[in-house]
């Protein structure tokens, strides 16, 4: 090594936020049922919208949601993005698809992974089905579902995604 060392041009400045996440009663109930392989949302007593995952209240009506509704593990792509940039510590190799999915019987979307698809052919309105992990690996986690794979069903028109009230 030479005596002349290079000028400093950068400094590592990582930030780590460490905290305890408490799920709350609605998410706890949701996760307990996902552990059993069931996707259970909650219906608003006013507008009848079904929320998956539930948050314990309806943001539109401002009322508590208690009635539980089991929805199917089939869903419609509401929106999606193709991720090309690797995220540190994320085991999934890019490019991959992250999508907002609306489960059949639900009126809001959740974020999940899509696979077994041609990335360039993924589109809004596309029908997908959950691919679950083996039952013995199920835990209190949304990734009991490994990913969602396309199924051979007609697309849902854009203006109808998540709009069916009262279940499907």
């Amino acid at each position: 090594m030479s005596e002349e060392r290079e000028m400093i041009t950068g400094m590592e400045a990582p930030i780590y936020l460490q905290y305890n996440f408490t799920a709350g009663s609605a998410s706890t109930r949701f996760l307990a049922q996902i552990k059993q392989g069931k996707i259970v949302g909650q219906r608003c007593p006013c507008c009848k919208n079904v929320y998956v995952p539930p948050r314990g209240s309806c943001a539109a009506c401002g009322v508590a949601t208690t009635e539980e509704v089991t929805v199917k593990d089939k869903a419609t792509v509401q929106s999606f993005t193709i991720v090309y940039i690797p995220i540190p510590n994320n085991p999934i190799k890019p490019p991959y698809i992250i999508a907002n999915l609306v489960a059949d019987g639900a009126n809001n979307s959740f974020i999940h992974l899509m696979s077994e698809c041609v990335n360039e052919e993924v589109h809004i309105g596309q029908r997908v089905k959950a691919v679950w992990k083996p039952e013995q690996e199920w835990d209190y986690a949304m990734d009991n579902i490994k990913y969602w794979a396309p199924i051979d069903e007609p697309d849902v028109p854009v203006d109808q995604i998540g709009k069916t009230i009262g279940g499907q």
């Binding site: 990582p14 780590y16 936020l17 905290y19 305890n20 996440f21 709350g24 996760l31 510590n89």
Partner: peptide, 10 residues
């Protein structure tokens, strides 16, 4: 009630 530690790093 479920609770677990999380770490978010930048």
């Amino acid at each position: 009630m479920l609770s677990q530690p999380f770490e978010l790093g930048f």
